[in-house]
Amino acid sequence: MLSDPMLDSIMSRSDWSEPDSVLGTYVAQMDRLINLVEPGVPLSLTVHGLLVSGDLIPQWQWFAEVSEMNDYEDAFFVGMAEHMKEQSDLAHHAIRQRDIGGEVTHRQMSALLAPTKYIHLRNTRIYSPDSKPDEVRLWRGRLSDVSGWTPGLSVDA
């Protein structure tokens, strides 16, 4: 069997498994917000052949809302929310310091440069080809699993 050099170069590219850099930047900017986001930014994603639509919220806010589900506060999720909020605050302050020519601490720089790996949605609908949409209050997924996206919600949402 003969190989096609053009096809071989496309198939061997390693960046196919990398998250979309534009979506990653969009989510990273959301994660750096330090105030609650209400109602969230409508977003639709394609994930392993499913359509996932919901409101994008910061990572720390997602953990805080999970901790409040079912009228209880789970210590793990409360702790994660506090940690993520602290990282968001550090990144936010690093940007402000950098913009005014101030000195950025190592902790602030680490928070600012931390890679964004997950996306967090609220009021989510998951559409599969053969059934009605499933509705979930909070959804978290890997950015590297998203194969396509668009701002806004799906037509039925």
Rank of each mutant, 00 (worst) to 15 (best):
V146P: 00
Y26D: 08
A91R: 03
M69V: 08
S110H: 09
A75R: 14
I100E: 13
G141I: 10
E65M: 13
N123I: 01
M69R: 15
A28N: 10
L112F: 12
E103H: 07
Q29D: 13
L113I: 08
L56V: 09
S44Y: 02
P19S: 15
V22K: 10
P39T: 08
G54V: 03
S44K: 07
Q59C: 15
N123L: 06
W62P: 00
K117C: 11
F63N: 02
T25V: 04
G102D: 05
G141Y: 02
D99G: 08
L36Y: 06
N123Y: 05
R140W: 07
S21W: 04
E135C: 05
H93V: 04
Q87Y: 02
R98P: 02
I34C: 12
E73N: 09
S128V: 04
G40I: 03
Y26M: 13
H120M: 05
E68L: 14
H120F: 12
I34W: 07
V27R: 01
L56M: 13
P5M: 11
V37W: 04
V52N: 01
K132M: 12
T105A: 10
L90Y: 08
I10P: 00
V22Y: 12
V146S: 02
S17T: 14
T105P: 04
S144D: 10
D89I: 15
L7D: 01
S131D: 10
E65F: 08
I10W: 08
P129A: 06
H92N: 15
L113H: 14
P19F: 10
V47P: 02
L121N: 05
A81F: 00
I119T: 02
L50Y: 07
K117M: 12
M11H: 05
L51C: 02
K85A: 09
E86L: 14
D8S: 06
W60M: 05
T116G: 01
L90E: 06
W62V: 02
A94E: 00
M109W: 09
M80E: 14
I95T: 06
H48T: 06
V41H: 11
W16Q: 09
D71M: 14
V136A: 10
P42V: 05
P115W: 03
D130P: 00
S44H: 02
Q61G: 07
S88W: 04
E82A: 11
V47S: 04
W60L: 09
G79E: 14
L7N: 08
N70V: 13
P42S: 11
D130E: 10
N35C: 13
I57D: 00
P42G: 07
D8G: 01
I10T: 03
S44D: 03
A28M: 08
H48Y: 09
W60A: 01
N123A: 13
D31R: 03
S17D: 08
L113R: 13
M80H: 05
T116R: 11
L138W: 06
A75K: 15
